[in-house]
Design a binder for these strands. Structure first.
Length: 595
RNA sequence: GGGACUGUGACCGAGAGGUGAGGUACUUGCUUGUCAAGCAAGCCGAUGACGGUUCGAGUCCGUCCAGUCCCGCCA
């Protein structure tokens, strides 16, 4: 017996056909001489009717069936009578009148309920993760995985059309101290030595360019041993792209074309070219390098209005060249004291000392009223662009902290006040990322993107001066040919044009404190390769799950992966990570040191 | 490394120091058309683990475990 249709396929046009459906029993409703089964497969649900009068044997067997049994049904598609149709399911105009039923497999009562009624909620996440194969039967998760498949399929089609070659690179590679923490794999054949799993195929894709492969891409698994977040898993998938003779403009066009195609899958029509913001401007106006442009509420600089203030917190901020900025919450005058306290707590997580506020209600109120006086406060509110009924939230401090806390506050307030429109897509390029970032603890600069990222051509003279004359503080001002594609506040892709000249590469190593010997030890093979005729090249990588998050608005990466891990990087289903047999350890010459 | 929240029957979930609702699932019976089937009955737990405070703890305190979210981290 072969199935003829999926459980989501039948329509009124199919009435009269004899069909075979196979699937899982979602529900059974027993009415004595009449029994209904909602049959579910990946495509949908079809109602099957068992009638004692017309199919006594099948009807009797149907009574034995329970939830999640796997059955095959042979029957006739019949039109449902007016008033008996079910508009909630796509097949709701028809039903299958069963002639035969075959129980393909029975099922234990599930450990949690897959089919929900309004009176119950989804089981807790750990229970569902333990029985992931059952949770995945839920139509929502299946839809996510199918969208993921269609997205990746579309990516492959597009990249192929654009002349790219999909090339696989090794999973067992070598650990480098740069970047994220590596997952390491012990070598049995060479005891005491370790492979690392790739954080990304970075060096290999550049080697593909040196190899003359010209246009490379890969749907690549990446591994990073860092703490997890709602949008971060230890292993994830990237569309990794690199092309020779590239420029930023070529990369932008390629990715805009790709995103345009892929976002069509969720019914979105992205306008190209995407608008662009430099990193500096994004930070200044949104306090974020991945601004969500679906709503306004831009950060406004208020330090000009406060020049010469005697209010100590503000005065000391200005004196130490910090920033005082604010955002306007439309209609925010109704914010309660409690809400403002909560927002202050929220801002403090990002290092903000305090959150000052002004409310333009029926009468002016402000946490700064005593300190600054009514006149100054009104001037501040006006400068921020607030009108009657609004509130202004103000944070003062070091530029980095003001951006982080006020940028996060902007998002938080927008969420709380429901200021973010749905079904709107606002992509943009964030460009000209800094080359280097100062690391307070280590007291030195690190490459912000990675050490092979090219500086802007016009910043090259400054770069030479910074390194050759050892003016290290200039390093913070250097801009890179590095870019992110951001959609609705999600960093969907990031990349750069690479350095292809040895001289510039040496400058970078010097800037981040790598002696030629150290650079050679870490990247020796790669530096060699660069000297054999490296074409100018550049590329980009798009996190597949992140891309899907921006397409769907789904806020948790786990919902876009088949078998994700928990926040403590565990797989509750297979119970990984686990201990290994002592013999395995011995073979690898490894010893566990107990605390 | 740090912070916040959560942990009650198979599942969801109420219970603001004095033995724990309700719903769903499951089992049985009844109802000829439901679609979150209905109705009735049954079944099911001493509340994540351990320790403490108390005459008495699910409720308070401590430690641990697990889950979620966030800061740090993620070039």
């Amino acid at each position: 017996m072969e199935r003829t249709h999926s459980c989501g396929a039948l329509r009124s046009e199919d009435v009269g056909k004899q069909v075979v459906l196979m699937g899982w029993v979602a529900r059974r409703r027993d009415f004595g001489p009449l029994t209904f089964i909602d049959l579910r497969d990946r495509d949908g649900i079809t109602q099957v009717v068992f009638n004692e009068e017309t199919a006594a044997e099948a009807h009797a067997r149907a009574k034995e069936v329970r939830g999640e049994y796997v059955i095959a049904v042979t029957g006739d598609v019949v039109l449902r009578a007016e008033g008996q149709r079910n508009p909630k399911i796509t097949t709701g105009d028809v039903e299958v009148s069963a002639r035969e039923i075959l129980i393909l497999n029975d099922a234990r009562t599930p450990p949690f309920q897959l089919e929900l009624t309004s009176s119950d909620a989804l089981a807790s996440e750990d229970t569902r993760l333990k029985y992931r194969y059952l949770d995945l039967r839920r139509p929502q998760l299946q839809a996510n995985l199918r969208l993921r498949h269609r997205t990746v399929a579309e990516i492959r089609r597009y990249m192929d059309e654009q002349g790219f070659t999909e090339i696989e690179t090794p999973i067992l590679i070598k650990s480098t101290p740069e970047g994220a923490r590596d997952y390491i794999v012990p070598s049995r054949i060479q005891p005491g030595k370790f492979y690392a799993l790739p954080q990304s195929p970075q060096l290999f894709k550049q080697l593909c360019m040196i190899a003359g492969l010209d246009k490379y891409y890969q749907i690549a698994r990446c591994f990073r041993d860092e703490d997890l977040r709602a949008d971060r898993q230890p292993e994830f998938t990237q569309l990794d792209v690199e092309l020779s003779f590239a420029s930023t403009e070529i990369v932008y066009r390629l990715v805009e074309g790709l995103f345009k195609r892929v976002f069509k899958l969720v019914g979105a029509d992205l306008e190209t070219p995407f608008p662009r913001l430099t990193f500096a401007e994004a930070m200044r106006r949104y306090g974020s390098d991945k601004p969500d442009l679906r709503f306004g509420m831009e950060l406004k600089d208020l330090s000009g209005e406060l020049e010469g203030t005697t209010f100590a917190p503000f005065a000391s901020t200005l004196e130490s060249r910090g920033e005082i900025k604010g955002i306007v919450v439309q209609g925010g005058a109704k914010l309660s004291r409690k809400a403002l306290d909560e927002l202050q707590e929220f801002a403090k997580r990002y290092g903000a000392g305090a959150l000052a506020w002004i409310k333009l209600g029926d009468e002016l109120s402000s946490s700064l009223l005593k300190a600054l006086g009514q006149e100054t406060i009104e001037r501040l509110a006006r400068a921020a662009g607030a009108v009657s009924g609004d509130a202004v939230l103000i944070i003062a401090g070091r530029a980095k902290i003001v951006a982080a806390s006020l940028g996060a506050l902007r998002l938080e307030v927008a969420r709380r006040e429901k200021l973010i429109p749905e079904n709107v897509y606002r992509p943009l390029w964030v460009t000209e990322f800094p080359m280097f970032e100062f690391h307070e603890e280590d007291g030195r600069y690190y490459a912000m993107h990675h050490p092979f990222t090219s500086p802007l051509d016009e910043d090259l003279p400054l770069f030479r001066r910074a390194v050759e004359e050892n003016e290290t503080r200039l390093l913070g001002d250097l801009r890179a040919k590095a870019y992110d594609a951001v959609v609705n506040g999600v960093e969907a892709a990031g990349g750069s044009i690479r350095i292809h000249q040895r001289e510039v590469q040496n400058l970078v190593f010097k800037a981040i404190g790598l002696t030629p010997e150290m650079a050679r030890e870490r990247f020796g093979f790669f530096l060699d390769a660069l000297e054999y005729g490296t074409p100018p090249h550049g590329g980009i990588a798009a996190g597949i799950e992140r891309l899907l998050m921006s397409m769907t608005g789904i806020e948790n990466i786990r919902d876009l992966m088949a078998f994700p891990k928990t926040a403590s990087a565990a797989d509750l289903m297979i119970d990984a990570p686990g201990e290994v047999d002592p013999r395995q350890l011995e073979e690898l010459r490894l010893k566990i040191v107990k605390e």
